[in-house]
Design a protein around this nucleic acid. Sequence first.
DNA 1: TGTTAATTCTG
DNA 2: AGAATTAAC
Length: 660
Amino acid sequence: MSGGGCSIVWFRRDLRVEDNPALAAGVRAGSVVAVFIWAPEEEGHFYPGRVSRWWLKHSLAHLDSSLRSLGTSLVTKRSTDTVSTLVEVVKSTGATQIFFNNLYDPVSLVRDHKAKEVLTAQGIVVHSFNADLLYEPWEVNDDHGHPFTTFAAFWERCLSMPYDPDSPLLPPKRIISGDMSRCASDTLVFEDESERGSNALLARAWSPGWSNADKALTAFINGPLLEYSKNRRKADSATTSFLSPHLHFGEVSVRKVFHLVRIKQVLWANEANQAGEESVNLFLKSIGLREYSRYISFNHPYSHERPLLGHLKFFPWVVDEGYFKAWRQGRTGYPLMDAGMRELWATGWLHDRIRVVVSSFFVKVLQLPWRWGMKYFWDTLLDADLESDALGWQYISGTLPDGREFDRIDNPQFEGYKFDPHGEYVRRWLPELARLPTEWIHHPWNAPESVLQAAGIELGSNYPRPIVEIDAAKSENGTDEGLGDSESIPIAFPTDIPMDVDHEPARNNPTLGRRYEDQMVPSMTSSFLRVEDEETSLDLPNSAPESRAEVPTNVNVNQEQRREAVHEGNMQTVRGNATLPQFNMTIGLRNAEDSTAESSSTSTRRERDGGVVPVWSPSTSSYSEQFVGEDNGIATSSSYLQRQPQSHQIMNWRRLSQTG
DNA sequence: TGTTAATTCTG
DNA sequence: AGAATTAAC
């Protein structure tokens, strides 16, 4: 259809040639220049972590070689301003059109909107596609045309949409290369010397790249999928799909995953293979959660940094860098937690169950602000994914309408025996506990001195005592082992904190500098600016306009019916009456002695969540600032947990700025 | 077959 | 943690 110029195909997190609608359309339109732009500074706090960058590096190399075999190659650009780099690329290639696939993270929503405006203004035709989801977020609405606010309803609708997700596309047979002679590639640097050594091990376990993703998918579907349900609770089971990093970078398309899994589903349904059916449903649900994370991100572009429910707004999170560090290093004294955190650090990978366990402990027992934990996950996970991780942490924190209740606190010891009944997982990652009998492996603090001695363990030196103690009175096997000698301090969670609490002087000092040298310990940056704005905004009536991001105007849709689905309704109250939880679990604080050496100035302080975010590198993004002062909705009472039913309302945020 | 204890599930 | 389902008695 196009005239003379070639087309740009802008690759982002869709690093595949198979079932890539933007690529397919670009190829159909004529000659193509494929581009990848590396502008990590634009991600602000969410500059990709070491292992994530390692993956990206290899995935790009893989894509490039595929493109070469098809007749072109990948142009790579280093940039600090993606949009202007795009403009340059367009000019230097004489392109008249640009094709890319949609993304739904907050940074991309803003950036892509701006790209469309700028490029369109220059006479470039912009086409964007759905390549990341079964259905675009704006296609899935309830009977009133409003977005869903709970996962189950959302997923049910996805599975019963009047039309199926698009079928996967084959790779192009051949690509006619556009003129790249005046558009030189930059060499992209994804790791520095200090990181190279740590990354070397990754290649043993993982093979990035779209065709490897495809192999992994096939292997999973023909193998472990059948037992997915049965094996789901083993901490170290090798029966998950291991597709998440592939999916994050779009090396394999969810539609293809969905397609192939459904074939199995039909097959097993016919055979009345119940285990198989159950497994398929469970696995599809995890695909659905990924979908939902994009859905949430699109409808609530702040969900990676703000709770969706406001009822914990004034909960006094524990701001303690010593706890945070102990958690990161796997030195909390709870074996399952520590094993998980050491695995994460060593491999960039954790079984989903362990992610839940470890983050749950972080939020419910240590009571640290979830955004810290999420940031650490972001920095260390091989499959770090902003939307999925935000959903996960909000789920754990109890700030989703259908998340875990905030006062549900799982006991680490019982979770240990649940997910690692024989202690194998703990022993693998905590060699210092290797000789401890299974009976004590998940609660060494109860073990008789003789047993510890025989196992070569000296609590407090060899392996830490629990940094925070949990009242064992609630233990089921309540053998009344108690909690050792230390006196537990009952912490009565405040139930009514005046609104003006914590009006500390704004601490806007950009960085306090690094405090210590362990695993890339973050310096702490505050942005109390935003907190103050939030607080003043509490007075505002609930009049904030709907928050969802703009629906792309030039979406390519096949069915006309998909087009209408743009609605602007307010989020509805989801939870009925909220009863005031009684926060009176008993927790002993013993961090003071243990962690003073490292977190000198900060003994346990309790603060509101929101202001302090750990960052590895100073934020260079203007993105965060862009939202400073935006109203975030609903609170009307001064207690952190309101008694009124409408307290459980999803927060609204103002729609994204329409003027780039 | 009724009551209760145990287990499982929850995005 | 609490609801719901299942096993046990």
